[in-house]
Structures are given as C-alpha cells and as structure tokens.
Amino acid sequence: MAEDVNGLLAKRFDKVASPPKATKAVIPEGSEATANHGGMGAVLFVVYVGKDGRVKDVRILESPNQYLSEDVIKAFMQWEFTPLAGDGEPKEFNFKLRIPFHLRRVA
C-alpha cells in the first residue's frame, strides 16, 4: 500500500524536485466488528499531513459504514511522510485515496 501511496504522491507533486514519500505505513486491518457489520466496499478519504510529515487529520468522504471509516482513520493517523519542501521551507499537503475492503464475517 505504501508503494501505491508513494506513486500517487509522485504524480500529484510531479513539479516538485523531491515529492513526499511514506516513511511509516500502517495497513488498515479490518476489525471483527468491521467484518460483522458488512466489511465490503470502498472508503474514500483525504489525508492531511503537517509540515513535519506527520498525519494531522483523516477525513472520510465516502464509506459504506462507520467501522470501515474507523479502521482507516486509526491506521492512517499513524503514517509518516518525508516533508514536502517548497521554496526551501516544509509545507503541509493533502491527498485523496480510495481503499477497497473485502472482509469476511467472523463465525
């Protein structure tokens, strides 16, 4: 997943000499509650990254249920990135991502 995000960032910041890259990635793991409440569908969200490369906020735009949303937020709040440098100063940035989930109900 980190490779996909890094590819997305490289495209989004293609005019920047050194686009930001993920240095710490935590993959969203579907919880038992998520699986038992319909763990299928895609979550569309925006990740907001501060000047220090740490995730400051994750905002859900579309989600089939709150459990998937919570899994995504919990995971992406732990991600870290190299700072986006512009004019020699670190800058905040954000990006949009869609993750599909296909979790099976726990018996």
Score class of each variant (00 low, 15 high):
Ala2Gln: 14
Ala2His: 10
Glu3Tyr: 03
Asn6Glu: 11
Leu8Phe: 05
Lys11Tyr: 08
Lys11Ser: 15
Arg12Lys: 15
Arg12Val: 09
Asp14Trp: 07
Lys15Ile: 09
Val16Glu: 13
Ala17Phe: 07
Ser18Glu: 14
Ser18Arg: 11
Pro19Tyr: 09
Pro19Gln: 07
Pro20Thr: 05
Lys21His: 06
Ala22Asn: 05
Thr23Gln: 05
Lys24Cys: 00
Ile27Trp: 01
Ile27Thr: 11
Pro28Gly: 13
Gly30Cys: 15
Gly30His: 04
Ser31Asp: 09
Glu32Leu: 08
Ala33Met: 11
Ala33Tyr: 03
His37Leu: 11
Gly38Thr: 02
Gly38Ser: 07
Met40Val: 13
Ala42Lys: 14
Val43Glu: 00
Phe45Ser: 10
Phe45Met: 08
Val46Arg: 09
Val46Glu: 08
Tyr48Trp: 11
Gly50Met: 05
Lys51Ile: 01
Gly53Asp: 03
Val55Met: 07
Lys56Gly: 14
Lys56Ile: 03
Lys56Met: 15
Asp57Thr: 06
Arg59Asp: 04
Ile60Leu: 01
Ile60Thr: 06
Ile60Asp: 00
Gln66Tyr: 09
Tyr67Trp: 15
Tyr67Met: 10
Ser69Met: 03
Val72Ala: 10
Ile73Gln: 14
Phe76Ser: 11
Met77Pro: 03
Trp79Arg: 08
Glu80Phe: 00
Glu80Ile: 01
Pro83Ser: 13
Leu84Arg: 09
Ala85Val: 12
Ala85Lys: 10
Asp87Met: 12
Gly88Gln: 02
Glu89Met: 13
Glu89Ile: 12
Pro90Glu: 11
Lys91Glu: 11
Phe93Ala: 02
Phe93Cys: 02
Asn94Asp: 14
Asn94Thr: 09
Phe95Leu: 07
